[in-house]
Design a protein around this nucleic acid. Structure first.
Lengths: 356, 356
DNA sequence: TTGTACGCGTTATCAG
DNA sequence: CTGATAACGCGTACAA
């Protein structure tokens, strides 16, 4: 059994409440006894039971970080930032990854709350969870901040990045390079048609008169989890897919991927099909993972202000906790377009031709 | 305030203990009342207070996952596997990332225990924490399983992968391709000289008579965290570093990286220095991150059995929890060498020459 | 079948 | 300055 304040009290022949006070530097207890108690506590390796403390205080100094997956580089990076920022403010953060499905997500969220977290950071939107479901089921008694690429269509505290603006930059860039046949390769799940990427794509396709946006958006093959817990896009499958795609869309001169991972794979697959990047086709992506700067060619991307977002989220959260409210607030952060080498002037040939 | 069993009891004019029993399907309570109570609980959106439950039960159904960083792809993947395995067994898992330094790590570990976790998975060894410190400070009252590349030099439950064997495979492979000047580029911190990678490298360098191993091992430039929480190896710095290295070691025909990320960067830097991979220099790494299969050329790697390791760790942990013991156990898992395209027959020229 | 009373380890309020 | 005593919400002997 772990030692409790009672053990210390008994040993020193004082009451447990004196021990409790002494341990938290309450000045009402004589400095002499205070010292004695602290020494004894140290000697007995006393560690306060945080469950008990949380129960009586109604506060746990613990923040929950809820996310569908911790596997994505950008998610884990975000978690680190949030964790460090919170630690500075005296809070611990516990990450809970839920696989993105509704049931586990809700379960974990409830658990977090039931475990008495003082606040909640909900990262991302979840596959197969609609906005309506989020609104209905993601109302927690503890202050909550949502962070994602999506402006949630209900009042809540949230900080998101302006992905649509990023898309605008991309389209502007590509258009300036002469591209008129720009396709979007989406790895995103259904049910969130309102994704700003889509909106941005629609808007700009219209603005530059690039044809029917709906026909330009294509869904990438599903990814899956391998036995090592890694989310994998099967290379073979993607190869077949992109081959078919280019055969039926030979006018394509630029591909905009919503996932940098898919973009990176494209960079490696296309040359094998006899398609050069960027000479034949330009590739660009949303999301700046580190691999993007050592790919061949280096990938042009929309960089997301993850660090700022998470620090802001933490600020919002702490504010909510201090003032014991949960009043809606929306912060939208600008993205930054990083031009590297995967985007170039449009090719002269109208149609692309694959090897053999 | 959240609703408690007392609230339900009052509403239904029964005692709170009846409610407590009913809610956990205790057959001693009349099925009629049981239904009434459950309905009422649902209606009042009752959620059990897990702090209180944990306090009285001495069990929380919660496992802590302690790691220096969650940022590495392999760590987050491992976390997902463990989390899912634990969930199946009825446990929740909370991840705590500590930045790898001693103080926060110890703090977080104590916190986890103080919060009443039923068990602990400690992933990796920690920068700047020696084996002695680990032995002294990582003795927790709750069952603990360590997972890492290192066999901890003290009795504990642990599952590690046999990295040395992986190195052996690499060296065998390279030697077979004619390489006699194999260098190791290590991204690992000091203080853990006992890393099996080193041992494996020493052993095989001796075995194949490849010269003084100590002179073959070189430390890569330090990485740092950028504002977005990503661990970055600065490309410029690494470029300068590798340039200098090759100038002073022109005999080098193969580089073995302990970090796949560095290897990937090398793949992109070397060509810019006029060095072709694998024609001029072979590159190989320990750790199979997904980017390794879409690099140019694809990277030969030692693949770690992360999934199996984590599932085994979970098994060990659950065993420890069930039997309420913490008796030492050591599981060592074999790695798998994946030959891709970054390793080839040794070049004919004795010395490498950089562009300009 | 149900209710009473107590304990889990803290903190907080009151007397003294 | 210190010590009873009462919460916090839940589980559970024990009694009814």
């Amino acid at each position: 059994m772990a030692t409790t304040i009672y053990d210390i009290a008994r040993e020193l022949d004082v009451s447990h409440s004196t021990v409790s006070r002494a341990l938290r530097d309450n000045p009402t207890v004589a400095s002499a006894t205070r010292r004695r108690i602290k020494e004894q506590a140290l000697k007995m390796r006393y560690k306060p039971n945080l469950l008990a403390r949380g129960l009586v205080n109604g506060k746990t100094q613990m923040i929950g970080f809820l996310t569908g997956s911790i596997y994505l580089e950008m998610v884990s990076a975000a978690a680190m930032v949030a964790s460090n920022a919170l630690r500075k403010a005296g809070y611990d953060m516990q990450i809970t990854a839920t696989e993105g499905r509704f049931k586990p997500t809700q379960h974990c969220a409830n658990d977090l709350v039931a475990r008495g977290v003082d606040g909640l950071i909900v990262r991302g939107v979840f596959p197969n969870i609609t906005a309506e479901q989020m609104q209905e089921h993601f109302q927690f008694p503890a202050p909550t901040v949502f962070t994602s690429a999506v402006q949630l269509p209900f009042p809540c505290r949230q900080v998101c990045h302006d992905e649509a603006a990023g898309v605008t930059e991309i389209m502007e860039h590509l258009y300036g390079l002469g591209h008129r046949h720009i396709y979007m390769l989406s790895g995103l799940w259904e049910g969130w048609k309102k994704y700003p990427v889509f909106q941005g794509f629609y808007k700009n396709t219209a603005k530059y008169n690039l044809g029917n946006a709906r026909e330009k958006i294509h869904k990438a093959p599903e990814s899956f989890f391998d036995e090592n817990g890694r989310r994998i896009y099967d290379t073979e499958v993607l190869t077949v897919w992109i081959k078919k795609f280019l055969q039926s869309h030979p006018d394509c001169t630029a591909i905009f991927c919503t996932s940098p991972k898919i973009a990176l794979m494209l960079l490696s697959i296309l040359p094998r099909l006899g398609v050069r990047v960027p000479e034949d086709i330009s590739v660009v992506s949303s999301g700046d993972i580190t691999g993007a700067s050592c790919s061949h060619p280096q990938l042009s991307v929309v960089s997301l202000p993850l660090g700022k977002m998470m620090r802001t989220a933490v600020e919002l959260l702490l504010d909510g906790i201090e003032n014991d409210d949960n009043k809606p607030a929306k912060v939208i952060m600008p993205t930054k377009f990083i031009i590297r080498q995967s985007t170039e002037k449009v090719r002269s040939k109208a149609r692309i031709k694959l090897k053999n």
